[in-house]
Design a protein around this nucleic acid. Sequence first.
DNA 1: ACCTGAACACCGTTCAAGT
DNA 2: ACCTGAACACCGTTCAAGT
Lengths: 236, 236
Amino acid sequence: MEAVLTAAVALLDEAGQSALTFRALASRLGTGVGTIYWYVSNKDELFDRATDHAVGGILTAVEELQESDDPIADLRAMAVVLFDAMMDRPWLAAYFMRNTDVQGHSLRLYDKLGRQTLRLDLTPRQRFHAVSAITGVVVGTAADLGAELPQELLDGDVDRVEYLSRYAETWRSLDAADFPFVHEIADEFAEHDDREQFLAALDLTLAGLRLQAGPRAPKDNATKSDPTANGSRPTP
Amino acid sequence: MEAVLTAAVALLDEAGQSALTFRALASRLGTGVGTIYWYVSNKDELFDRATDHAVGGILTAVEELQESDDPIADLRAMAVVLFDAMMDRPWLAAYFMRNTDVQGHSLRLYDKLGRQTLRLDLTPRQRFHAVSAITGVVVGTAADLGAELPQELLDGDVDRVEYLSRYAETWRSLDAADFPFVHEIADEFAEHDDREQFLAALDLTLAGLRLQAGPRAPKDNATKSDPTANGSRPTP
DNA sequence: ACCTGAACACCGTTCAAGT
DNA sequence: ACCTGAACACCGTTCAAGT
């Protein structure tokens, strides 16, 4: 079992999603395809277990983080670790946190994140939504990366900067009156850095969360929280 | 071409991602598989074009929205329209905004969204990041929905509430000391509504954006913006 | 309990051949 | 210019048969 998962992860690392087939996995393990079906009941489960196997490593990295006195800063640090792991392994995003029945490490990681929200002045529902929002930003951005790479880039015919600037070129050539925004950010797009983009999205979410969590200054635990300003908020 | 795309969208609507095959599409159109390859060079492009075809409808819905004096409220309204369309068609999220070469409607929609950020006191880069963050929330949450449905649900063996409460049951049975957060939100999860969860995530992002856009009160255009507090922010 | 691999049904894609 | 469908290489999954 252990061997099956490490081999599966290796295949995914080497050549991405499409490289993980029962046949490829079997031949790497030196066995028949049927063998794998003894450990795993279908391909979805294979992906789930391979993903969780990789999440194991992320979990230990997250557990090594020092807890600060600012829960939101801690959430940020964890999200960054998670995102960086997904940049290394773009295939991770697709199956991350699906089916926690099988994904024990993922559930632990989810709890690790959520525990920080317990330190904030929020309702259970707000906590649930906050963690979902944060994992959503991580997975959403990372899933884009996994899908973003077209053939040309993987084949090495074109490098990333050329690819992006060709896009920007097309965008600049559009009618500025018709596409004012696309025109405005064409240059930004050409030079954009995925990690920076992720951090920007994450920080918007965290800023919103900080606002929601109440008036206490970020790292100031001396001030008692204002009971009139607890987290409850009318549903939009 | 038009007929190919409407047939493709119909297949996707009826039975999801996996139902769109060249053979199924050909037989629905009463032709051979080869015919489709004359209109489209591979399956990715087929998905891209089918997605953009559907986005056409979303675009007109978005264009019918009235512009208010609050750009952030307008962004919110557009995001909600987009999300609702994706709840109707969970297959949309997977290919949305990939390859705007082929997706003319998507590019227009992207510009529509971005135009609202032009009304905010932000740098081009912040505008670019803001729109990416917002579409990320929409697509990220919607992609979850598309993937979330396991076999049991599609087969109708189990309905949604039973499925969720079975999960919650498992979560409650975990050691509360080991999984304090999962324990805390088990009930929330059992009753969670996807749309509400989306709105919560969106509102966190928008709250962050409002903060970033400067000190002006949301709907107050009388106050001159404070030049010392423009949107620039040190990169984290 | 664990392994094997031929067999089945189904893909995307190509291409020589047609109108 | 547009259509056709057999053929190819490759999937996931099953299962009778082995140890």
